[in-house]
Design a protein around this nucleic acid. Sequence first.
DNA 1: AGCCGCCGTTAAGGTTCCGTAAACACGGGC
DNA 2: GCCCGTGTTTACGGAACCTTAACGGCGGCT
Lengths: 233, 233
Amino acid sequence: MDEPRRTVLVIEDELPIRRFLRAALGAQQLHVVEAANGADGLALAASAAPDVILLDLGLPDIDGLEVLARLREWSTVPVIVLSARGQEADKVRGLDAGADDYLGKPFGVPELAARIRVALRHGDREAAPASVYANAGLRIDLHSRAVTRDGVPLHLSPRQYRVLAVLARHAGRVVTHAQLLREVWGEASDASPDYVRIAIHELRHRLEPDPVRPRWLRTEPGVGYRLIDDAGG
Amino acid sequence: MDEPRRTVLVIEDELPIRRFLRAALGAQQLHVVEAANGADGLALAASAAPDVILLDLGLPDIDGLEVLARLREWSTVPVIVLSARGQEADKVRGLDAGADDYLGKPFGVPELAARIRVALRHGDREAAPASVYANAGLRIDLHSRAVTRDGVPLHLSPRQYRVLAVLARHAGRVVTHAQLLREVWGEASDASPDYVRIAIHELRHRLEPDPVRPRWLRTEPGVGYRLIDDAGG
DNA sequence: AGCCGCCGTTAAGGTTCCGTAAACACGGGC
DNA sequence: GCCCGTGTTTACGGAACCTTAACGGCGGCT
């Protein structure tokens, strides 16, 4: 229901087509990020961390296939090529260069949406890194959403889990109050820092043997909180 | 240069097309296995463990989309649909039913070969999921659609089985309400989350010794449900 | 010393979410 | 045509949860 909104990066130089895609994809509940040339596209592919990329081949600065090749040096994000060049040889070149799909213009929005859904399915199955925090009996598996202490499963409320997950993702480092509010309660939220305090309190009560002397959830006065990681930090 | 030869399963009723594909794919250093109808195709998908499947939609015994749906109950092998029906609505249906790609006839061999290479890349990145769930007396065989508890076969309605199958495929991990709705009720469905709640309720009543204290079908408040897997959470 | 900000703790109220029951429509088998 | 299993839809009580507020302790600053 409240699944995280997926991000699609559109790399396309023609403004009308960008506008068209923005409207069409926005209607599919997708978050759209746009780049008008290859250089910006590559930069956004890194900074915006899109779930799928739509790539036009006729770009003004860098050749589309070159963009694809540079992207594939470090990313496996699904790429769907949109091209006016619909010749078979072009398709083969694009697909062999690392594209996951190839749509010749003109294309229908329903088909594009369906192929994006396919790409998102692929991305889901692939983006399953070994994201597990384990330290002195406490184990947080971000993939299966399971928290155990000494092998005993712990029950956490949605809020509590999200707070803990953010801390686990930055294990060993300090996470500021503002950062926690942003990542848990959302960007546009008027939530007060009090929420964090209470969530931490509840978390300590559920997973700390002695909540008064926290072993894992350490307070950094004036800054935020830190999930202790003996290994690194 | 002695890479393991990849296997392609061709499910296609027309003999001339099978012959054509056998020749074309053989020339690409692919090992070709053939099925002339849906039933044989499903059987071969299990026994021959192909790396990719080419599926024609116009089969004599089972509808192609039905073959795809049954296959997807236990396998994630890449499927490329080959169809004379090239209308956009057909493509969307096929892709949403679980296909990874959709080629309208007639197609060129180079493009087909390129799209097969894409599918093989995808297949490499993902691990083959177990097709049988077994945990503390409960056993779910995704191949034969059989569910037993302590050796006793349980009767489940189609809807109930599909919900349980999705959970079994993600055993140990949380499956969100939205994900269950998508995978059971379909991509473009306005079904309400209430359906999931009721399906779970019915499932618990049929397979939990004490439905009030579920042993397998654990609810994750605010998120979804989880099929407990003691081995690998 | 006294004030103030930060943090931990507790409690209460309102809301959301879940489990459960029941009514209705639909289709297949007999 | 009738019965039964199934899927859909609505409704409701209770529990869990989030928010909000308030209080006290501790330390730093003036």
